[in-house]
Design a protein around this nucleic acid. Structure first.
Lengths: 139, 139
DNA sequence: CCTTTTATTGTACTAATTGTATCATTGTAA
DNA sequence: TTACAATGATACAATTAGTACAATAAAAGG
């Protein structure tokens, strides 16, 4: 078994760039367990052909996911879902980096017109579903 | 097949601004079924050339239609007729866009090694401080 | 086996296409 | 004339596409 089919649904009318849609859907499939750590993703060219987009558009999505450490792209080899989220961040910077990250997230949500109530509700739901998924994994 | 011909008839004697005529006629063609959700409109430059007007005039019309949610303009990509979704559908899209944003935020926080507790605490603090600032602003 | 060649895969850089922002110009009405 | 709305000119930013390249793996040849 090489790689999965990875069916993605692009929508030109969504207003979101194609590369963003690819990023979001791969992340979503990982959270939902459709994709699992170690899975090989299609090559940039294969996925591009399937989605009928330029392979650089897929490469851009993969690069974003790679920077988020969600996948690992390896020139000449392929692209895989990351096995373990590793990184060691110095303790002093932890708080600041989370604060900055949160600030960016909330600003973006506000820009999209969401209220604080909606944001906090969504954070709660999302954290809960991740915890549930983790429990299921350990069975 | 990329985009339709989109024949518009401008009338200088009508007294209506060009951009208004463009807006009206596109709206009319959508109502009459000549244009359908998902259709790609000509680029601002292409339509401008055809109508022999400045492309900013077309862009202005597109912007108005975009604000009315009739079309979706996407820099670097083009312009499309949007669905005219029933409220529950648009609510669903809204929900999903916040969900995707939140998922990315939480994934990133996890990647940096933060726990769910830390994340939700930080979100709470951040939302609270924004509210405090808003109160101060309104004085 | 070991080396060389070829194919496959991601990367880097650049170009082309598209909408956006800002300001200048024009025309018309008060 | 003056004020304002409409349109035009110019520069910019975002997205996607095109081309050439580098790293790795697989195949071929000895």
């Amino acid at each position: 078994m090489a790689e999965k089919q990875l069916t993605l649904n692009l929508d030109v009318r969504s207003g979101l760039p194609i590369y963003t849609q690819i990023v979001n859907q791969i992340q979503s499939q990982l959270v939902n367990g459709i994709l699992k750590p170690g899975d090989q993703l299609p090559t940039v060219r294969a996925l591009a052909q399937e989605l009928r987009v330029n392979f650089n558009t897929v490469a851009r999505a993969y690069r974003i996911l790679d920077e988020e450490r969600i996948i690992s792209t390896q020139q000449g080899r392929g692209t895989y879902i990351t096995e373990i989220p590793p990184p060691e961040v110095s303790a002093k910077l932890r708080y600041e980096s989370l604060a900055a990250l949160t600030q960016r997230f909330i600003n973006e949500a506000y820009r999209l017109g969401f209220s604080g109530r909606e944001v906090s509700q969504m954070v709660r739901d999302n954290l809960k579903s991740m915890k549930d998924a983790a429990v299921n994994d350990s069975e």
